[in-house]
Amino acid sequence: MLKPLSKLIFAGALVAGVSLHASAITVGYITKSATNSGWIMINQGAADAAKEENAKLVTVGPAFQGDLASQLEVFENLAAQGVDAIGVAPVDSSGIAPAVQAAMEAGIAVVAIDTGVSGAEVTSFVATDNEAVAKIQGQEAAKLVADGDKIIYVTGNQAQSTGQERRDGFMAGFKAERPNSEILLVPTEWNSDQAQAGVEALLNNHSDVKMVVNAWDGGTMGAKAALENLGFGPGDVKLVGFDGAADAIVAMDEGWVQVDTAQMLYQMGYQGIKTAIRAAGNMTVEKRIDTGTFLVTPETSAEYKALIGM
């Protein structure tokens, strides 16, 4: 668990060491959402990185989460304005590819943040490996239940690669350990009220569910509300989160959440924009930067909170 973390610190030190020259560089930053609590942390990291480097950061987001058309439009606008680099969190891996390719050919450095681009080269890809982290989530979740116990998995948007990878990773990790457990699914489009209503319906219908695992922490909070609505107390049904969002960590302190696989969200935004600035200054950058993961449990939550400044 500490291994990816130490790598991350090392990478951070590397980045910090060469941050002297960049000045008056303009970086476009296209985020996926300005209202999702996880994305707020990523965006904060991006803003801080630009501030440190004295670079100008132009932040734009889509009208609503998952709106590819508006993201393409802002991407092309930024490229046309002649920014030095673009940090982008694609809402659709292949949908954004033609625009990325055009920008790269025009000499603009493109750094993909959180979600990769398929079908076009990028300067660098800064993200956690969703599938690998979700696999850890599955293995850790398996330890909380016996083989044959019924569980619920709250999915993210299954039309997006992030949602697919988290689900695939979790299934692989969990099923290897607990092959006889039945997994009921609650489909969502990253929407916490869908998670709440779906979990409530399933829990009410299947009284033998032992655990609810979530593809992101908005789902975790929705699932927690569903448990409260049905009169369950903390720990009656196990909750497993993904993201390490602040409210889920608070819920962990209250005994609701047992495990949360945290992405280093702030680092993702911070390193993404740092990398973009470096690339714009013609420095060599790594093609793939893994921002690491942190396994938050009641034992490690204090350490995690110190790390993210909670």
């Binding site: 209202t35 999702n36 609503f64 929407n191 916490s192 009220d193 709440q196 909070m221 929705g222 927690k224 509300a225 609505n229 409210d247």
Partner: peptide, 15 residues
């Protein structure tokens, strides 16, 4: 009514 069932109050409800 929604707040009576929801985990917290947030401005992206009701989309």
């Amino acid at each position: 009514m929604f707040l009576g069932r929801a985990p917290y109050a947030k401005s992206d409800y009701g989309q």
